[in-house]
Design a protein around this nucleic acid. Structure first.
Lengths: 90, 90
DNA sequence: TTGACGCATGCCCATATCGGTATATATTAC
DNA sequence: GTAATATATACCGATATGGGCATGCGTCAA
């Protein structure tokens, strides 16, 4: 992430072959998560954090359901208590 | 997301079979993204947004590289300009 | 210009994943 | 008790995915 790296470097780091890394990087490039810079016979890949922005926001969109989830849970628990009290009364 | 639903409901909504939905929900349950409540012969599934929190934070952790990415890009562009000027001088 | 190097692609195999059918289990209704 | 309903699981086939090797193409160095 921290700096751009040639394909073979990525491959070595991840313990895979050069073609393997090349194919992964291709996908990441196609979805906009990395950018490439050609330097001679090397292709320097680097993270393009902009591509993660939509993902981050999408996941964050569920945040609003956090409280609601617990509210539902509380409602349920209260219903249980009421039901029990009524059963005790009978 | 907005409320708890029985398996068959989820299946119908997603246009898949009941076993299909059941298997997906099992996975989601195992990774903590949904919770289940047994109601008679029904299993009411609901989103557990807490499970998304770590994902959200993990993705957000890359946010710090956003600016750095552009700084690297700017540095590169400046290097190009300098190199061109030197070439022009020669 | 020729050989070495870096990368991308084509091809192939092993395995994972997805979705379906059949079926066992548990619960409700009669 | 028996039938109907809701779910989970086992099993199976089609397809996707991951990773390797062989190879072609561009680039650099001698």
């Amino acid at each position: 992430m921290e700096r751009e790296r040639p394909v073979s470097d990525v491959a070595r780091t991840l313990g895979m072959t050069q073609p393997g890394a090349s194919k992964h990087l291709r996908i990441l490039r196609e979805v906009g998560l990395v950018r490439v810079r050609e330097a001679g016979r090397e292709r320097l890949y680097a993270l393009d954090a902009r591509g993660l922005r939509p993902i981050h926001e999408w996941v964050g969109g569920f945040e609003q359901y956090r409280n609601e989830t617990f509210e539902r849970l509380n409602t349920y628990v209260r219903e249980l208590q009421v039901a029990r009290e009524e059963a005790d009364d009978a």
